[in-house]
Design a protein around this nucleic acid. Structure first.
Lengths: 349, 349
DNA sequence: AGTATTAATCTAAGCGCTTTGGGAAACCAG
DNA sequence: CTGGTTTCCCAAAGCGCTTAGATTAATACT
C-alpha cells in the first residue's frame, strides 16, 4: 500500500492525504480522521526512501564500531551503549545504521555514509589520542557526537565522556590510603583516550603520594579476559609483585581474578583489586557487598544521552557544541583491603 | 556531488554516466574510464535513497535484537554474531540496520521494516519455542534467515543453527562417564529454542543412563553472571548437592565458578563444570589447557554464514529454503574430572 | 448583491537515481 | 550507393514521497 493507492481509495489527492497524515493544518479534521482511519486499516507506512528523498533527511544515525587487532575484539561495551541509544532513536523515528570498520577503512566509512546520504549524523566511538575523525567530520559537515573526548583537537565539538582521569586517580588514592605502594595498572589500549586518561589519573595519584611509577607493572592491551589473566600471572611471578591492581574493565578483571586465585592468593585479602565497571547488563556488581570495589558509570545511560544530544544537534544545527562530563562513583566491594604482609605463594594446580 | 552535476561536468547525459559507473556494456571503454576518473576525483557516491527508490532495493539488512526482561539484558552473543554478518554485508555493499525491540513491539517492528521498505531482508535472532515470527514474515513476504530453528513451525524456511541437543547430550554423557550422577543444568531461558534443545539433550543423556532428572538442580534464566552465581550458590547448599554443572554460557559459568570457590570447593576437582562456549572474542578459552571443558561453536562464523545465506536468498528468491546445522566440538579443559567423594564444605569468607 | 477572506483541496514540480525505448553515426555487405 | 547492423549516446518516464502555488468552495463583510 503506497500513498497513491491510499489516495485513490479515499478519492483524495496525494497531497491531502500526505498532509493529513503529517499533521498539517490545511486539512479539515473530518477528512484527517477519515484518512488516518483508512491508513491504519491498511497498515500504510510511508516508504522511507521516498520520504527521505523528498525531505532530504535520512532519518538514520550511523554508529561506526572500530576494530583494531586481527582478532577483532568487539567490545561488549558497544552493545550496551547502542542498546541505550537505540531507545532514543526509535522513540523519535530514527533508524540505527551499524558499520564495523577496521581502522584503515574508517575514514572512508564516514565519507561514504555522508556522501551516500545514508545518515543524518554519526556517533563516534572509541576516540583516539590523535584522532583524525574530528577534522574529517567537520570537513564533510556531518553532525556528530563523540563518546569520549579528543584532547589534541583544537576544534570544539560535541562529546559525552566520563571523568576517567578523576575516577582512576580516586581509585588509586584509595589503594594508597589502604597502604598499597606497588599498584599495577591493567589498562586498555592507551592509544584510546579513555585508557590514556585513566593512566594519567593513576600517575597523578601515584606522584602525589610520592610513589614510584613502574612500567613493569603496567600493561595496555585489548579489554579481554586473557589480557587480565596473562598480565597478572606474569606480574605475580615478580619478586616484588604488586599488592594491588587497578583494572580497566570487569571482563579484564575476571582474568586478573583467575590469575590471583591460581597463584594461591586471595582477592580482597592478599591482593586488592579495583575495577572500572561499565554496568554491563549481564554482569551486575550490585549485590549488597559487591564482588569488586569499582568506579561505576553506566554506558547505557551514556548511550541515551549521546543519542539525545545528537538528535538535538540535527534538529538545530546552529546549536553550540554540547558537552557532558559524567563523574564515576566509587563503591566499595569485597575486592579491596589493607595491604598485608606477603605470604608464601603456591600454585594450586 | 550528484549524478546530474557529474554528467554536466562530463558533458554527457545522466544515463550514460550511470551506465558507465554501473558497468553496462552500452558505453565505450574510453568514456567509461573518463567517467570513472571524474567520479573518483570528485568522490561521487550515488545517493542510497535515490538508488533505492529507483531500483526498489534497500540494500540493507535488518537485525532485530529482542529484549525480554525489565533489566534488558543485551546478550553479547549478538554483538559477535553481528560482527561476523557485517563483514559479509559491507563486502556486498549492504548496510546493517539494527533495532532493539522488546517482545511486545517485535511483530510491529518487522511489519514496519517491511512496509517502510527499509530493508531487503532480516535475520531473526533468538527464536522461541512458539514463535509467531515465521508465519508473520511469510505473510508479509520479507526474506529472512533464522539464527536457530523453530521446532513447532510446520513451514519450511531458512535457518542456521548449532546442534544444541547433541552438544549437551554429549557433554552430559561425558560427565556421566566420569561418574557424576547429580548433574545440574544452568540453562538460558527455556522459552528460547537453543535452551530448550539443550535441556532435551541433557534429559536424553540422563535418561539413557537411567539417572533421575531432578528439577531442583535445574535453572532457566537470562545468561548473566548473577544467574550462574545465585543458582550455584543455592544448589551447593543442598544436602545432596550436584557434583557437576552443565552451563549454557561462558558468562554464566563465571558466576558458577565464583560460587564454587566461595563454597570452598575447587572446580575440576571437587566439582566439574562443562560450558557452552560461543567463542566470544573477549573470552578465549583456547589455551593449551583451556580453563573450561566446553562445547564450542563460533557465533561469529554463524553470523557470516547466516548473512551469506540471506543475501543468496535475496538475490534469487526462487531458491529453496536453505538449512545449515553446525556441530559443536567438545574439548577437554581444566574444569572437569572424575567424581570425588564429597568433602566437608566450608565458606571462605 | 457583490467583493474580500478564509478554508479545503488539488495540480504539478522536484528529490537523485535507473531504465526503457529511441536515434544518430559509423560500419559492413552486397 | 543502399539497406541492414552495430555502437554509442540521449530524452524522458518513473520510483513514492513532500510541498509551493493554483484553484475552488464556503463564509464574512459592507
Amino acid at each position: 500500500m503506497n500513498l497513491k493507492e491510499l489516495a485513490e481509495l479515499l478519492e483524495l489527492s496525494q497531497t491531502t492525504v500526505s498532509r493529513a497524515l503529517n499533521g498539517y493544518p490545511e486539512v479539515s479534521e473530518s477528512t484527517r480522521e477519515r484518512v488516518q482511519q483508512m491508513a491504519r486499516q491498511h497498515k500504510y507506512r510511508p516508504n522511507t526512501r521516498a520520504t527521505g528523498l523528498a525531505t532530504g533527511k535520512a532519518m538514520a544515525i550511523g554508529h561506526v564500531i572500530p576494530v583494531y587487532s586481527k582478532n577483532e575484539v568487539v567490545n561488549p561495551v558497544f552493545g550496551e551503549f547502542i542498546a541505550g541509544a537505540s531507545q532514543v532513536y526509535s522513540a523519535k523515528g530514527y533508524e540505527l545504521l551499524l558499520t564495523v570498520a577496521d581502522s584503515e577503512n574508517e575514514q572512508d566509512t564516514y565519507r561514504n555514509l555522508a556522501a551516500k546520504g545514508a545518515v543524518d549524523g554519526v556517533i563516534v566511538h572509541a576516540p583516539q589520542v590523535e584522532d583524525a575523525r574530528v577534522a574529517l567530520l567537520r570537513e564533510i559537515g556531518l553532525p556528530f557526537v563523540i563518546h569520549g573526548r579528543v584532547p589534541t583537537s583544537e576544534l570544539d565539538y560535541s562529546w559525552i565522556d566520563i571523568n576517567n582521569r578523576r575516577a582512576f586517580s580516586q581509585a588509586t588514592k584509595l589503594l594508597i590510603d589502604l597502604g598499597h605502594e606497588r599498584i599495577a595498572l591493567i589498562n586498555g589500549l592507551e592509544m584510546l583516550t579513555f585508557a590514556d586518561s585513566r593512566k594519567r589519573g593513576y600517575s597523578e595519584a601515584m606522584n602525589a603520594a610520592g610513589l614510584k611509577i613502574d612500567p613493569t607493572i603496567m600493561t595496555s592491551d585489548e579489554l579481554t579476559e586473557g589480557h587480565g589473566y596473562h598480565a597478572t600471572r606474569n606480574m605475580l611471578k615478580l619478586e616484588n609483585y604488586p599488592t594491588a591492581f587497578l583494572v580497566s574493565s570487569y571482563i579484564v578483571a575476571l582474568g586478573v581474578q583467575r590469575a590471583i586465585s591460581q597463584a594461591g592468593l586471595r582477592m580482597g585479602d592478599d591482593v586488592s583489586v579495583i575495577i572500572h565497571d561499565d554496568d554491563l547488563s549481564f554482569f551486575h556488581n550490585n549485590d549488597p557487598e559487591p564482588q569488586f570495589t569499582a568506579t561505576h558509570s553506566s554506558v547505557r545511560e551514556a548511550g541515551v544521552m549521546a543519542a539525545q544530544m545528537l538528535l538535538n544537534i540535527i534538529d538545530d544545527p546552529s546549536l553550540a557544541p554540547m558537552n557532558q562530563l559524567l563523574e564515576a562513583r566509587l563503591t566499595i566491594g569485597a575486592s579491596t583491603g589493607p595491604v598485608k604482609k606477603k605470604r608464601q605463594r603456591h600454585v594450586t594446580r
